[in-house]
Design a protein around this nucleic acid. Structure first.
Lengths: 201, 201
DNA sequence: TACATGTCTTACCATATGGTAAGTAGTAAA
DNA sequence: TTTACTACTTACCATATGGTAAGACATGTA
C-alpha cells in the first residue's frame, strides 16, 4: 500500500470516528493531507469503499490481538479478567476505534456490516468459551453465558465512548479518578460474576 | 403544541435515532408527513432547533421516570436492581431513544451538549446514591461507586443498542434467548457487585 | 368588512456533495 | 524515443442541502 493511500486511511479513520460517515466528506479527508478529493478517489474509487477499507483494517487488527491474547493455560477466570482489562487499556489508548465501532453498531440497523459483526462474533466466542470453563458456569446455558459476557464487554465499550461526556460532567479530575478506579472494578466484577455463576431460574 | 408540530417531533426523533444528525435532512422529516420542509422550518426555525427539541423532550421524560421510580424506602440494593431492570425494559420497548442518546454520547466530543449531560448526571447521581446506601459500599470512594454504577448502566445501554447486530450474529431465536436471560443476569450481577463491595486497593 | 394570525406552499439561492472526464508531470521499462 | 503506468490536478456536473422571501388559504376578531 502506497504512502499516501495509508495516510488517507489513517485520516479517514479518525474523521469517521469523530463525526460519522455522513458527517465527513471525502474532500474533508483529502484536505487534511493537502490533497484534492480526486486524489482520494483515485486511490479508493468511492467514499463507500474508503469506509469499507477503514472497517476492514480495524477488524483485522482486533482479530489478531484476540488471537495473540488467548495463549496460556492459566485459570480461565483470570484470563477473562485480564482480557477485559486489556480491552479497556486498549480503549483508553486509542478511543478512536471504539467510537467508530460504536457508530457501526448504531448504523448497522439493516445493512448488518459483516466486518464488524464477524470481529464481534469471534471475540465474544472466545470470551464465552473462557467463562464456561469456570466450574460454577459449566452448566449454564449459552444464552446465560453470553448475557454475562456481553454485560462486561458493553460496560467497557460504553465507558470508553463516554469519555468526553464524563469529562464535561465531572471535570478532568473526576474523570481521572474514575479512570483509575475502573479497571480494578472491572476485574472485581468479573470475579464476582464468575463466582456467583448463572442466576437461578 | 400543535398537532403537526408534535408529529414532526416524533418523526424527527425516529429518523435522528436511525441515521444520526447528518444522515437526516429536514426534507426527509417533512416528507414523512407529506409536508414540505418549509412547513417544518415554520414550526422549528432551523434543523438545529428541531434536534434540540428532540433532545429536550427525551431528557424531560427520562428525568420524570427516574423521579417516579425512586419513591420507596425498600432495600437500596433491590431498588438499584429494579431501576436497572426497568431501564432495560424501557430500552427494549423503545430502543429508539437509546440509539439517539448513544449518538449524542458520540457526537458530544467538543460540543458538550448540556441537555444530555445533565440528564445523565442526575440519573447517575441517584444510582450512586442508592449504591452507597448499601452497607458494604458505605466506605467506598465516590469514584469507586461511580465506576460500579457506570458499568451497570453501560451494560444495559450497550446491549440495547446492539440489537440489530446481535440478531445478525445469532439469528432472531438466539437473540430472544439472550433477551430473556439478560434481565435476571443484570439483577444477579447487581447483587453480586453490591455484596462484594468495592475492590481492595 | 377589514385586518391579523397561524399554517402551509411555491420560488429561489448559495453552498456542499459524490462522482466523471480529461489532462499533466514524473518515472521506468522497450 | 516511444510507450505505459502511477499519482495526481483542474474543469465540470447533477443532485441535495439548509435557509430566505413572499404569497395562498383558512380561521378568528375588531
Amino acid at each position: 500500500m502506497s504512502n499516501t493511500k495509508q495516510a488517507l486511511l489513517d485520516v479517514a479513520e479518525t474523521l469517521f470516528a469523530e463525526r460519522g460517515y455522513y458527517g465527513v466528506s471525502i474532500a474533508n479527508v483529502a484536505d487534511e493531507l493537502g490533497l484534492t478529493k480526486q486524489a482520494l478517489l483515485h486511490h479508493y474509487g468511492s467514499k463507500g469503499r474508503l469506509y469499507g477499507a477503514v472497517l476492514e483494517r480495524i477488524s483485522r487488527d482486533y482479530l489478531s490481538a484476540v488471537a495473540s491474547a488467548s495463549d496460556a493455560d492459566r485459570d480461565p477466570a483470570e484470563r477473562l479478567g485480564d482480557l477485559l482489562i486489556e480491552l479497556f487499556q486498549r480503549s483508553l489508548d486509542n478511543p478512536t476505534r471504539d467510537r467508530l465501532l460504536m457508530r457501526e453498531l448504531l448504523d448497522n440497523h439493516e445493512r448488518a456490516n459483516e466486518a464488524e459483526a464477524w470481529y464481534l462474533r469471534d471475540f465474544l466466542k472466545s470470551l464465552v468459551g473462557l467463562l464456561v470453563q469456570c466450574p460454577s458456569w459449566s452448566r449454564a446455558s449459552s444464552a446465560q453465558a453470553f448475557s454475562a459476557v456481553y454485560q462486561l464487554v458493553g460496560a467497557v465499550a460504553y465507558f470508553s465512548v463516554s469519555a468526553p461526556t464524563l469529562i464535561a460532567m465531572g471535570g478532568k479530575l473526576g474523570y481521572r479518578q474514575v479512570c483509575n478506579a475502573f479497571p480494578s472494578q472491572i476485574g472485581h466484577t468479573v470475579t464476582s460474576v464468575v463466582d456467583a455463576g448463572p442466576p437461578p431460574h
